[in-house]
Design a protein around this nucleic acid. Sequence first.
RNA 1: GGGCGUGUAGCAUAGCCUGGAUAAUGCACCGGCCUCCUAAGCCGGGGACCGCGGGUUCGAAUCCUGCCGCGCCCGCCA
Length: 578
Amino acid sequence: MQILQQTVEPYFKEAMGTLGVQSSDYEKLLGLATVADHGDLAIACHSLSRILKKSPVDIGDELSSILKPLLDGIVEVNSLNGFVNLKATDGWIEKHCGIICNDARLGVNKSSISRTVAIDYSSPNVAKEMHVGHLRSTVIGDSLTRILEHLGHKVIRENHIGDWGTPFGMLIEHLLDLGEGDAGNELSVGDLDGFYKTARTKFDDDSAFADRSRSRVVLLQSGDKETLRLWQVLVDESTRYFNEVYQLLGVLLVDDDLMGESAYHHLLPNVVEHLDNKGLLKNSDGADVVFPGGHLNRDGEPLPLIVRKGDGGYNYATTDLACIIDRVQRLGANDLLYVVGTPQARHFEMVFAVAHQAGLLDDSNRAIHVNFGSVLGSDGKVLKSRSGSAVKLVDLLKEAVTRADEVIGEKNPNLVGKERQEIANAIGIGAVKYADLSTDRTRDYMFDWSKMLSFEGDTAPYLQYAHARIRSIFDKVESDSWHSSSLSIENDSERRLARSIIGFADAIQSAYVDLMPNRICIHLHQLSAAFGSFYENCPVLVAEKNEVRDSRLKLCDATARILSTGLGLLGIHAPDRM
RNA sequence: GGGCGUGUAGCAUAGCCUGGAUAAUGCACCGGCCUCCUAAGCCGGGGACCGCGGGUUCGAAUCCUGCCGCGCCCGCCA
C-alpha cells in the first residue's frame, strides 16, 4: 500500500498546511494502519495535541473534515479516538488492482539504478559432505540472486568452494592409497564424508602417512604437475557431486560460478604487499597482521586480522581480501554479498574494515555479510558436521520428495508417471526450501524433519495448492474475454484479495532492501489465505453475472501469477496441478 | 571477563530498524463445513503479565538503561 500512501501524501500535507502545522511536526504521522479493520492508512493526531492545543479527538475530527473533500473517491476518511483512518475506496482498489492485473510484472518495477552485485554463497568443501549449513547458504543465496535479478540488477554468483589448503595433502595421499579408480568410485557415489574421515583418521594415527601428507602439501603449493593433476581429480569428483545436489535442489549454480579458494592463491602475496605499501602491516608474534581497530582479544588487547601466518602461509582473511580485489576491480562489483553463517560476523567486520582502510572498498561499495543463524538439532543445540551428524543433505532432499510423493498418492492418485514425479519434486524440495526461507534468516533455525516435511499450514505446499486450484479453474475457461474486462469489487473476500495483490510490490521491495526472503513468504502466505477465503465464498465459473465472473477471473489470474512469481523468487516451483 | 546476538500463547514464528488504537500467523487443542470451480482447504472458539525491573513519551513488544537466561565470537582452522 505504498502506492496509496504516495497518492495521499500531498493531500495530507495540504491539510496540515491548512491546520498550520509545520512539516517537521507531522513528518511520520501518516503511515500504514496497524488495525486492518480501521483502514489502510492512519494518522495519529496525539502528538499534534500540544501544538494545536486541542484534544487529539478534536484534531482528528477537524483533520478528517478537511481531508474528506480532498480525498474524495480515493479513500474513505473517518476519525476515531484521535486517529484519522483512511480506507481505500472500492473504486481506488478496482483501478489500482486492475493496473496490476494487467501488468506482466505485477506492479514490481525494475530499480531505476542497476547495480552489479557479487554474491558469495553455498561454498561447500571439496571432499566433504554438504550439510544443513550449506543448505541454508545455498537456498538463501539462490533466492537473493533471483530477487536481485528480478529487480534488474546484474548478479555475479560466486561459489567459493573450499578447494585449497593443508587438508589436501592428506586427501591426495589417501586418494593414492585407494587407487584413483576406487577413490573416484567412492567419491562419485557421494560418500565424501567417508573419504574425508578415513583420511583424517590415517593422518592422526599413522605418522608415516602424516609425513607424506605434509610433503604433499608442499608439492601442491609449489605447483608440482602430478600433484595438481591428483588435486584436480578430487575437485572434479566433488564438483560433479555438488552439481547433483544443486540439480536436485533446483538452484541456479553452475560450473561457471565456481570460484574456489585456489583461484585466488596466486594473488595472496600481492594482498600482503598492498597492505604493506599502505603502511597497515604490522608484525605480531611472527605473523603479518593488520589491526583494524574496534576489536579486542580476551586480554583486552587490540585484535589483529592475520594475513600471513608465522610459518609464512596465508589464511582465509588473506583470501577474502583477494576476493574483494577481484570482485571490485575485475568484475566491477558495486555490492559484495556474503551469505555466510552468523558465527563469522566478526571475521567479516574485520575484513571489511581492513579493505576500507586499504582502499580496496570505497563509499560506492556495499560489502554486506548476509548472515544466517545456526542450524539447531531437535535438542536445540547447534548441529555440527564434525560431531558426525548423520544428516546428509542429499538424503534429506530425497526423503522430502518421497514423502511428497506419498501424499500425492493419497490426495490425488490420478497423477502418474513423469508429471507426478515432477510434482513430488516441486512439493518436497519446495517444502524444504520454504522451511528455510520463511523465517528471519538471522535467527537460529531448528532443523525439524516432521515440520519441514509436513504439508500443512504456512508451507510451500499450501501456496502451491492455492496456485494449483486457480490453474484448475482456468483449465475450464474456454474464452479469453475476461482479459479485457474491468474489476468490480463487491464483497470483503474480494477486497481482501485485491488488497493483497496490490501489496506484492511492497513485499518484494522489503525483501530486497533488507535482503530478507521471508518478507516474500509472509506476503504469499497472506495472499494465499485471502485467496482461500475468496475461493470458498466467491464462485468464479458459476458466478451469477458475466461481469462478476470475469472480474473474479482477473483476480484469480493475478493471484496465480503472484504465487508462481513469488515462489519463483524463492526458487520454488508452482505446478499447475497437484 | 569483553564483544555481538537473542528471549513474544504448549510448540514454532511474524511484528522491532521507521513507537500508536482489542499483539498477528501456523502447528497442536475444541466445535462446525465436501449432492457445488482440487477439504493439502474454509468458518468459528479457547489459549500471551511480548524474560524481569527502571527510564523516555500523550502512547513502548518496538527506543534507552540495568539485571537474568540462552547462543555465538574473542590470534596464526575456514
